[in-house]
């Protein structure tokens, strides 16, 4: 469990980083939080010749809340974003999902942008980026590319960034006022990768009936494609939802494409996708508080304590 030899680079700024990536090409890997990369190196599942450590690069560790979205720099740790009050007000789904990202010690080092670039189908933050119609800013010596989530994720563990590009930030979109969001996940143990997870954003009309419902999934699809559930549930109120269970099951079950593994069968994961979507729909249609904020289907309170 020792990595193969590599050359270590610690650039001081973005420009130097980009020049290194341009020079080293596919032989280099970017090291940010290292929560996925370092175990992979230690187990020699990957042996890049060069490691470009961006932890000393200035200006990448900021969270900026703008009307257009929440900008998250490449060095922002999950824990930082989780505790950022303006960010979670602007996009509540961030906090709702981040609480499910592994354990506090991993969130303290792991970066949100890193987990997006990692493009693990079991990652929470790619699903959030997708549902919020966010994008990733890729920068290279040749200039910038702003890639929307819908085309950023290419396949399991694969994004569209080229070897010479650095993901300098991810921008999570904001929902129109009144949008209700929820995130649900079922894992074998607290903090494990989800067997199945669902992110949901819902809008209701003045009469309390659904006008829009969109979902993205964790550990259930190869890339975090957004499922528009609006056709299945439009016009429904909380009371109508039980009658729509069959339609929701059909739409969600048809969208997700889980696989069997040692922890769960594909059929069971699909079942969990449907159950959690139902539960989120129930809670979000019913769960508005008097002050207009949404009562959120959050992680258990013991997670709150450890966070």
């Amino acid at each position: 469990m020792k990595p193969a030899p590599f050359v270590y680079h610690a650039p001081a700024d973005v420009q130097e980083t980009l020049e290194l990536l341009a020079e080293l090409g596919p032989e280099a890997k970017v090291l940010a939080g290292g929560q996925s990369l370092v175990p992979v190196l230690n187990m020699r599942l990957a042996s890049p010749a060069h490691l470009v450590d961006i932890n000393r690069v200035a200006g990448l560790d900021e969270v900026t809340v703008e009307p257009g979205g929440v900008r998250v720099g490449a060095l922002v740790r999950h824990a930082h974003l989780l505790s950022h009050s303006a960010a979670r007000t602007a996009q509540p789904l961030l906090r709702q999902a981040l609480r499910w990202v592994a354990h506090p010690v991993i969130r303290n080092r792991g970066t949100t942008v890193g987990s997006i670039v990692h493009a693990d189908p079991a990652g929470e933050m790619p699903a959030v980026l997708a549902l919020t119609d966010g994008h990733v800013l890729l920068r290279s010596v040749h200039g910038d590319r702003e890639v929307p989530a819908s085309s950023f994720f290419v396949g399991p563990m694969e994004c569209c960034a080229t070897a010479d590009e650095l993901a300098v930030e991810a921008v999570f979109g904001r929902f129109p006022p009144g949008t209700r969001t929820g995130f649900s996940e079922i894992a074998r143990r607290h903090g494990d990768y989800a067997l199945a997870g669902v992110a949901l954003a819902l809008r209701l009309g003045d009469d309390g009936s659904v006008t829009s419902a969109r979902a993205s999934f964790v550990s259930l699809t190869e890339v975090p494609d957004v499922l528009d559930l609006t056709d299945a549930v439009a016009g429904a109120t909380a009371a109508d939802l039980p009658g729509l269970a069959g339609r929701v099951e059909e739409v969600v079950g048809g969208h997700v494409d889980p696989v069997d593994d040692i922890h769960a069968s594909a059929d069971y994961r699909r079942h969990l996708a449907v159950v959690q979507t139902h539960r989120l729909l129930d809670r979000l249609t019913a769960g508005e508080d008097a002050d207009g904020t949404v009562r959120l289907p959050d992680a258990p309170t013991d997670q709150e304590v450890t966070a």
């Binding site: 143990r189 903090g191 040692i262």
Partner: peptide
């Protein structure tokens, strides 16, 4: 052995 790591061999945490 398909789960030869603590990622996939699930020992209970204190939470379990």
């Amino acid at each position: 052995l398909l789960n030869a790591s603590f990622m996939d061999f699930l020992m209970p945490f204190a939470t379990e």
